[in-house]
Design a protein around this nucleic acid. Sequence first.
DNA 1: ATTTGGTATGATAGCGCAATCATGATGCCT
DNA 2: AGGCATCATGATTGCGCTATCATACCAAAT
Lengths: 337, 337
Amino acid sequence: MSRRVTLSDVAELSGVSAITVSRVLNQPEKVSEPVQNKVNAAISKLGYIPNRSASALASARSGVIGVVIPSLSNNVFNDVLRGVYDVTGPAGYQVLLVDTHYSPIEEERMIRTLLGQAPEAMIITGGNQTEHARKLLEKAEIPIVQIMDKLDEPVDMNVGFSHRKAAFEVVERILAAGYTKLGFLGARMDPRAQQRLQGYRLAMEQAGLLNDDLVLTTPRPSSIAMGCELFKGLVAQSGGLCDAVFCVNDDLALGTLFECQRMNISIPKDLAICGFNDIEASALVNPPLSSVRVPRHEMGVVATEMVIKAIKGEVISERVVDCGYQIKMRESTRAVA
Amino acid sequence: MSRRVTLSDVAELSGVSAITVSRVLNQPEKVSEPVQNKVNAAISKLGYIPNRSASALASARSGVIGVVIPSLSNNVFNDVLRGVYDVTGPAGYQVLLVDTHYSPIEEERMIRTLLGQAPEAMIITGGNQTEHARKLLEKAEIPIVQIMDKLDEPVDMNVGFSHRKAAFEVVERILAAGYTKLGFLGARMDPRAQQRLQGYRLAMEQAGLLNDDLVLTTPRPSSIAMGCELFKGLVAQSGGLCDAVFCVNDDLALGTLFECQRMNISIPKDLAICGFNDIEASALVNPPLSSVRVPRHEMGVVATEMVIKAIKGEVISERVVDCGYQIKMRESTRAVA
DNA sequence: ATTTGGTATGATAGCGCAATCATGATGCCT
DNA sequence: AGGCATCATGATTGCGCTATCATACCAAAT
């Protein structure tokens, strides 16, 4: 059972002090070339791999960025995460990812766990933290970006967009296309889904078209199958009175589309469909689905760049970034003739 | 700038020694109840959060499990990852996730990075490691599971299934349904995709139907849009001669389906389509797509349970688990009349 | 009364590394 | 020639925690 290779093993083999080896690894410009070569040779000969725990303890820098997302199954967060990794990797940070299952209680526990790793920064989805979790975050005194939502009172920094405004605007566009009996389908109903529902309600109310029979939501997880189910539910609940459906996300919209195909409901002639998120499939199904494109990957990138800048002590001029969205009106909500 | 709260702060406030506080956290059964209460009160009063780096250093147990996947964008790995988290969370392990972008060179670097965190175990996708990476893994002397593939010579443990066999079998089924000009579409072409192609070739050859004009692959990333593109390419390349297409994954199959809908090619009358992975959409589109269901979540769960058992020193009776697959024949490959 | 054994708590040391300060060597200026 | 940066390297210390061994105490058994 061979003991782990340490810095001083390398130091001994290369005939220098331990701290010099440390410098070769962390600040090579401070070490002369011949010494560097000796040390590097010893490192590869011994297969030395630095122990990050010890490094973190000694330097008070863990090289870890904590990321809190509500769900691993939701592909939306995947894209964000990819953006995060695209920045952390080259910058030499590790990502510690936790999944809260959409529960603020669990989120608080996860944040506590993460803080135990002494992350140098955190990226957190949304602003729905428990009071205690928020205190923990504030006390941590590290850069924190809350992403996805546009928040009124971010803990620290914020990168997101207004889901309410986006939904409001897309509903206005659908109504402007001539539809009047626009239903709403929602699942999971996390804070962002709630805000989209609010946007829908606001726009419908403003147009004098709000009708609770046209709204159907469930707290259960969202999926394409759930879209099929909810659409059937909405048909039953509204007496088949809808001429359009706004779905809280594209999964539900796809489910609705596929179900309509089976029910011989022609899109958009008999029914218009609009989703949210603009996942890849939406533009490629037949007919292409209208949706709201949101810069998921970009949010991950921007948020990560912000925290890394902040870690380095640089001044962040824009601590709140509204990264906007794009409404994609496609065939599925073509204007009524 | 308040200094971080440490164990000894808690010890001082509660009037016990530091080691006792440590015990309250790690082995509470060894501490009397009144002392536990005192200590816990002090912990919450001070908002103490243990420093995992120090703990890892002192105990030589990091509580970290390293996970290596080739791509964050591929949802297949997402499901696996969810399985991993479902086990690690309750067991109190942290996951350190890295993304190799399908590159063995990058994988080697990532493995090195991971090992620096002194993970107690590792879960790695596939068996395509560089020679050096393999050495590193062996030298690490920690439990390692390679997942997704069924490997001939795993580094340590293995949970997966034979992609070649699965593809071979599903191609046989398609041929048995009466199709003779079965094309193959592939993208990304990682080792698993290659194996599926091999399975296809084997089955086609065995049936005397192999024809290179029916095979079209690209190293570029897979996506639904790529499915559309490849299908158009295959039509051009084969002179429209296919009566069926086997796609290396469901994204390509969906792309093919959607493109066929636009080209007024009727499925399965004019063309049969079969995918691989059985993602949610496959069963819900029209017509439902045949596919091969693979236990992604289960692989994550099983692999993680195995390494955790191994960490605890339990004996793993089955070090190689073939978790199989299920062929789902649906409307898209209905037998020709 | 003494031994034994178990339980609860503490003292000490050290995990592997980097911050800090110290030292010696070198070059360059006046 | 003397003084003073500048550079390369080293010695020491401590980060916050836990392993290890030691100690104090009490109950039961002799």
